Amino acid sequence: MKTLTSTNQKVEREKKVKVSFKEAWSLHKEKYLLIAPFAIIFVIFNLVPVAVAMGLSFTSFNMLEAPDFIGLANYIQLLAYDDVFLIAVKNTLLLAIITGPISYLMCFLFAWLINELPPKPRAILTLIFYAPSISGNVYMIWKLIFSSDMYGFANAWLIKMGIIDSPILWFETAEYILPILILVQLWLSLGVSFLAFIAGLQTVDKSLYEAGAVDGIKNRWQELWYVTLPSMKPQLMFGAVMQITNSLSISAISIELVGFPSIDYAGHTILTHLHDFGNVRFEMGYASAIATVLFLIMLIANILVQKLLRKVGD
């Protein structure tokens, strides 16, 4: 195990060796030319809008008049006086803290188990588990399950078992809204990260398992920690970024299931708050401030998670 760890550390050190741009260009110019179209599109449609939004966050802008610079007024209003935003932050962090780690572990666990199967069953189960994340009518299913009348499946089952006497108003009762959103988000969580983990498991060098056995690895858990996880760190990083982004940007689920705005803002998130000021009120300066705060939260969360993942296998 020490040999494997030292080998992984040596590879990491070799990756960190710096080369000049000229040397890198001469060695990899064909690759740079191939990714140039995507890089240009990424800069124009991702980086530039982010920079513009950050600039607009310091202005008052209603899309009809020119932006008026107001300094930190939007941020002061947002953080000190906007009570609904504070509710949205609390709901968003609760959703992220609960669904983020659980969905990440679910993605890896199911990918690890499915990867042990023969090719055909693996392909079928991958499709079954991935299907909910791309289903177009997913909200109709959960609306039917938690329908507020006696025809909803949840109410029908509870009444049949004698637990309740009358239907529960699931989407109209504040205390039930957040647990339902967590449940639906977890059900939808086996998406791109799940596929990335399966791909990563497929690319692990099988000879490393033989070397691990010679080096003293005695069971599957040690094999997982010292061989499998260090070998698929890029996929683990990608999956972490995707799960953090998904858990902090919950909006469509809340709007579709519990309405907009939800009862007592129980399902209100930062992204639905952004939707309110950006797409309903057209207060683009204030909406840009909300987007900037959400971006900073995502950035900090990603940095912390990546630091933790670098310790995998040590």
Rank of each mutant, 00 (worst) to 15 (best):
E172D: 11
E172T: 05
E172R: 12
T173K: 09
T173D: 13
T173H: 08
A174P: 14
A174E: 15
E175Y: 09
Y176E: 07
Y176S: 09
Y176L: 10
Y176Q: 09
Y176A: 07
I177T: 08
I177C: 13
I177Y: 05
L178T: 06
L178M: 15
P179F: 01
P179C: 03
P179G: 05
P179Q: 05
I180Q: 02
I180N: 01
L181F: 00
L181R: 00
L181S: 00
L181P: 00
L181V: 00
I182L: 09
I182Q: 03
L183S: 06
L183Y: 04
L183D: 01
V184A: 07
V184C: 02
V184M: 07
Q185G: 15
Q185R: 15
Q185H: 12
L186Y: 03
L186H: 01
L186A: 01
W187S: 00
W187D: 00
L188Y: 02
L188W: 03
L188F: 05
S189W: 00
S189Y: 00
S189I: 00
S189N: 02
L190H: 01
L190E: 00
L190T: 03
G191A: 13
G191I: 02
G191T: 04
V192W: 05
V192L: 11
S193N: 10
S193T: 13
S193F: 06
S193P: 15
F194T: 02
F194Q: 04
F194N: 03
F194V: 03
F194A: 03
L195D: 03
F197A: 10
F197G: 07
F197N: 05
F197P: 07
F197R: 07
I198Y: 02
I198R: 05
I198S: 04
A199T: 10
G200R: 04
G200L: 01
L201A: 08
L201W: 01
Q202G: 15
Q202N: 14
Q202I: 10
Q202T: 12
T203P: 06
T203C: 08
V204Y: 01
D205K: 09
D205S: 14
D205H: 08
K206M: 15
S207W: 05
S207K: 12
S207A: 14
L208T: 07
L208E: 07
Y209M: 12
Y209W: 06
Y209C: 13
E210H: 03
E210N: 05
E210Q: 09
A211W: 00
A211F: 01
G212F: 05
G212H: 02
G212A: 14
G212E: 05
G212W: 02
G212L: 07
A213R: 13
V214R: 10
V214T: 11
V214A: 13
D215N: 12
D215M: 11
D215V: 13
D215I: 12
G216Y: 04
I217Y: 04
K218C: 06
K218A: 14
K218S: 13
K218N: 08
N219S: 08
N219R: 09
N219M: 11
R220I: 15
R220K: 15
R220M: 14
Q222F: 01
E223Q: 09
L224E: 08
L224V: 12
L224S: 11
W225H: 11
W225R: 14
W225G: 08
Y226C: 13
V227K: 06
V227W: 02
T228S: 14
T228G: 13
L229V: 09
L229E: 06
L229Y: 05
L229M: 11
P230Y: 07
P230S: 11
P230C: 14
S231I: 13
S231C: 15
S231F: 07
S231K: 10
M232C: 13
